[in-house]
Structure formats: C-alpha cells, structure tokens
C-alpha cells in the first residue's frame, strides 16, 4: 500500500517537474536539434536554420 502511494506521489511529482510553461504567441520559439529529417530544408539540422522562413512547427504522431 505504502509502495503504491509513494509511486503515485512520484508520478505526481514527475508531472509537476516536467510541466513547463507553454510557449505562447509573442514568445520566442525555443530551438532544438534534429535527430533525423525527411524533405527538410536543405542543410538544416536545427530549427533556427529556418530563420528567414515562416515556419509551421507541428508536433505529431503516426498513431
């Protein structure tokens, strides 16, 4: 029982620890590196290589 509770507590803490403030309109879009890409802008290895372009950043899943 205690174990279940501490697991639950840990899970709850994990949620809090990872809940970063959302990026809103007017904020700078944080940069990130690409692990791999298909059909991307030639030579681009990170988001900031797209400056000069208007970028639609979509986070998706195949499922």
């Amino acid at each position: 029982m205690t174990k279940t509770w501490s697991m639950a507590l840990l899970a709850a803490l994990a949620v809090f620890a990872t809940a970063l403030p959302a990026i809103e309109v007017g904020d700078s879009g944080p940069d990130f590196k690409f692990d791999k890409s298909w059909n991307a802008l030639e030579g681009a290895t990170k988001l900031s290589d797209y400056r000069e372009r208007v970028v639609l950043l979509e986070v998706w899943a195949t499922w």
């Binding site: 959302a22 990026i23 950043l57 979509e58 986070v59």
Partner: peptide
Amino acid sequence: YGIIKASNVLKTYGGTGYPSAWVLDV
C-alpha cells in the same frame, strides 16, 4: 513536407497533445 525526428519538443513548447502546432515568423 519537412518531417523531423526530435525528442522533447512537445514538452519544451508546453503542448497538450498530438497534434499541436505553432507558427514562427522569420
């Protein structure tokens, strides 16, 4: 169109689920 494999982007941007989108200017 451009497809990228990268980790933690949803978390970094504070998205709530799939799909989420942001448009960035130049």
